[in-house]
Design a protein around this nucleic acid. Structure first.
Lengths: 339, 339
DNA sequence: CTGTTAGCGCCTTCAG
DNA sequence: CTGAAGGCGCTAACAG
């Protein structure tokens, strides 16, 4: 196989020849670190322009052992929560002159492991990751040892201690439940994502804790943990509404469930109190507007990225575990009294 | 500055020493291309496991002149249209064992140029880009010459001929307008993004063409071109509603305007026919549900990526200019009769 | 201020 | 089947 023509991109050597100076002098001019006599600098610059030379970052990076690139592995880039987070990470990376490699693990632990290896092999300087449930922790531990800084977002990883940025899932959900309790509700259902997900589990715990604090007996029949994207989940939710002694309010555990609940209630013509965890677009324009406990995905991304860059800059302080608050936004649906 | 310890990641040389074979033999085992005697292969594999060796992709890429990485530059990763597109690109890239570098140009032509240079310097094999308005075409042309395949999405680039995937903005908007005409409207407003944007301009033209075909006299007072995110745009929109002989229907030119229009109409308590270009989440759950002309951002991303990979695989056929259709989805808001 | 030498980690000749 | 030598493009270390 031919070594790929790679077109004819000029190298420093070409520039050096044309300007009739040494390779190193070109390097000095390009990087502007050391001083070069004005005469030669001008010749070099002219040669650079003439040839359209641009420094080959790959070669530079191989030499320096750094890539000026960080990686981001999330569940799903198409999910508004993660795309907002990714945008914030990108902005911080850009400010630090780093590029961003983004990948979605799609909740598949094997794929997540492969992505970590793939990004790592490309020599990223750091990695921000939402660890997929069921990942082999050794894959991540290996990164830490390989000198690649690691920050977890949205969930911690089992068995790997690294900087972590997450949201106060329990406290936020509990606040949502208390809001419904204050409106007079006593039978509040919790509708969350698959029980295997960390955030879903934490939010369920927050829900239970708030009920317990209020002295309300726990009723597991009011808890539904299921994938909001699965068709059968809709029926499970409707069954929840149709049982004897049905709930008068719903705490939905993420925005995908909130959206689905809104649609299902709408089809039913049912009006029942609702508070959703995680805000979503147009929640304020629905009828009634949906009250939510809002996270700040951009803040999660920004803090994670800033933490990562502080590590890359040499900060060797103790591991940080940052927990961001979640804010209740009353809009109408959560203030309805029980029927 | 110390040359960064880069921790102690083992190299092929380390593996070779431990297995007591030559560097080249390790290379052969790692890449599995040429055959190696079983005995040595076993020793090498054991050494690889023991050291936790993983091939340094950077070095490999420098040698081979390919990075197995493609770049994607869009306006804003946090915008649902672009994040969905990006997700689709990522999926195709993953299927081709390529990583994806993502960057948002934030509508800033200088930033977009810097991003192109930055990604290009990292040696990406191909680039998918939504060219920012006002970019220097030479920056992009240079990529083509440097042997980096280029695909434009969502808009074409001036002065640079490359593969392009875009949506039928004119036809889609015209279909939306015809839908409103069929419901009996004669005074239809067009509310689009800043006039300098390609898609906004195309949609405005589609709107005008549909009116002309229907024999309706053009009224430029019914056209508003403004940034949907700017505060003053809201007032401009309300002024449109308050003028003498106001419109009985609105064609909104993108999803950000649609969302804003929905909110403004809601605040006003006004009920007026509406069709939006580009679908958005929960459009079906609003009151009334919003009729839209839907694009398929995932299809745009997928086709662009597939086109790019076919080029990388050696397809040297003529430039392709793919135009995807847009689909009218009637939901209620566009079927209202004029008052 | 300038140039030479060496080598980052790997792959590709080309001899054994 | 195996190994030695050379180089991808660049930068660090050391001379002049």
């Amino acid at each position: 196989m031919t070594p790929l023509p790679r077109s004819t991109r000029p190298t420093m050597n070409d520039v050096a020849k044309l300007a009739d100076v040494s390779l190193k002098t070109v390097s000095r001019v390009v990087n502007g670190t050391e001083s070069v006599s004005a005469a030669k600098a001008v010749r070099v610059e002219a040669a650079i322009r003439e040839l359209g030379f641009r420094r080959n970052e790959q070669a530079r990076q191989l030499r320096q052992g750094t890539t000026a690139t960080i990686g981001l592995i999330i569940e799903d880039l198409a999910d508004p929560f993660y795309s907002t987070l990714a945008r914030a990470v990108e902005e911080v990376a850009h400010a630090h002159h780093h590029a961003l490699l983004v990948s979605s693990s799609a909740e598949d632990p094997r794929r997540a492991e492969a992505l970590v290896r793939s990004l790592s092999g490309r020599g990223i300087d750091g990695l921000i990751i939402t660890p997929a449930e069921g990942m082999d922790p050794r894959v991540l531990a290996a990164e830490g040892e390989a000198g690649c800084s690691l920050v977890f977002v949205d969930r911690p990883s089992v068995d790997v201690d690294a900087d972590t940025v997450l949201v106060d899932n329990r406290g936020g959900t509990a606040a949502g439940v208390r809001h419904l309790l204050a409106a007079g509700h006593r039978r509040i259902a919790f509708v969350g994502d698959t029980a295997s997900l960390y955030t879903a589990q934490e939010r369920r715990i927050g829900y239970l804790e708030a009920l317990e604090t209020a002295g309300i007996e726990r009723d597991d029949n009011l808890v539904l943990m299921a994938n909001p994207a699965a068709p059968e989940s809709g029926e499970a939710f409707l069954a929840l509404l149709d049982r004897d002694n049905p709930p008068t309010a719903i705490l939905s555990g993420n925005n995908r469930w909130s959206v689905r609940v809104v649609r299902l209630l709408r089809q039913r013509g049912a009006s029942i109190a609702l508070v959703g965890f995680d805000d979503f677009e147009l929640a304020d324009a629905l009828e009634p507007p949906v009250s939510v406990v809002a996270q700040d995905p951009a803040a999660v991304g920004r803090l994670a990225a800033e933490l990562l860059f502080s590590r890359l800059a040499g900060d060797t302080g103790p591991r940080q575990h940052i927990q961001l608050g979640a804010t209740l936004i009353p809009r109408g649906s959560g203030e309805r009294a029980p029927r």
